[in-house]
Simulated scan of single mutants.
Amino acid sequence: MPAFTAADVKRLRDATGAGMMDSKKALTEADGDYDKAIEFLRVKGAKDVGKRLERSTTNGVVVSRDGALLELDCETDFVAKNADFVKLAERLLDVVLAEKPADVDALLAAQVDGQTVAALVESESARIGEKLVLSRFAVFEGTTAVYLHKRATDLPPAIGVAVQYSGGDADAARSLAMHVAAARPRYLTREEVPAEAVETERRVAEQTAKEEGKPEQAIGRIVDGRVNAFYKDFVLLEQPSITEPKRTVQQVIGDAGLTVERFVRFEVGQA
């Protein structure tokens, strides 16, 4: 019997929207492997698996200044909109801009007012009464467009996008940043997509086509089509433009003379 717990079943249900029995079966088929269980449910057509995987109940804020973004998470929206919490995020962003740390661990080890950033976050967590997590940050050195989005008018920004670019103009770049916020791309080009991610999509597409009873001679074509659909969903330059849905982002920014060098998208609670 595969080793998994009721908590594992709940986690899978929350992530995929599948029923309890389907989740237990998926974990059994996957020998308790969470990622394989998700793949099993995708093949079986669990409702809204992809959409539910992106959901989170985590709260927090994304702050930005001078081409940098930082995400600080908390447990409740009550704390997220607290002025002291937002001020803490801004203070941490000051450290990022001053120290240019290599990663989150380096930032947590940095000194601020005679203590480490980690100690500062811990003390503020104790004072506020909620777990606080310094999730991530990014610093862009080139010309950068930034867009921050609020999920609700009474909450601070929960989505932040930074796009480093050349050519074009600031309006076109900001429009692209707004597209990134809404369309959730993961990669700039298809060459950036990890080989294992493509292989997973091919495997899921092939297994799904077989489950659907598609003719053997058509499966290769179906798999290629579904992998291309994956690229259109998650590769920025291949996505349909939100402003001009019949054209790709590449076509729209090409007409604007804009070249994207890199981008990041932070959403509170999302990996």
Rank of each mutant, 00 (worst) to 15 (best):
L148T: 09
E211T: 13
H149Q: 14
F230W: 05
A182G: 11
R184T: 14
A195K: 13
S166Y: 02
K246G: 12
V252L: 04
S241I: 07
V180Q: 00
R247M: 12
D233M: 04
P215D: 09
G213H: 08
I222P: 05
Y187L: 04
A229M: 07
P185T: 07
S175H: 08
R203L: 13
A197L: 12
I159K: 03
H179R: 02
A209C: 12
T243K: 12
L237G: 04
E212W: 06
I242C: 08
A162H: 00
A158L: 04
T153A: 15
K210G: 05
P240T: 09
E192R: 10
T153G: 13
H179M: 03
L237C: 06
L176E: 05
P240S: 13
P156N: 10
E244P: 03
D171P: 00
I222R: 02
R247G: 10
P156E: 08
I222T: 05
S241K: 03
R226C: 01
P185W: 03
V198C: 07
A152S: 15
L188V: 08
D169S: 10
K150Y: 11
K214C: 11
A218Y: 06
A209F: 11
Q239W: 09
P194M: 05
V161M: 00
T248G: 11
G167Q: 00
Q239T: 11
E212Y: 07
E201F: 07
D224G: 13
A173V: 02
A182C: 11
I222H: 03
D154M: 10
R221Q: 11
F230A: 05
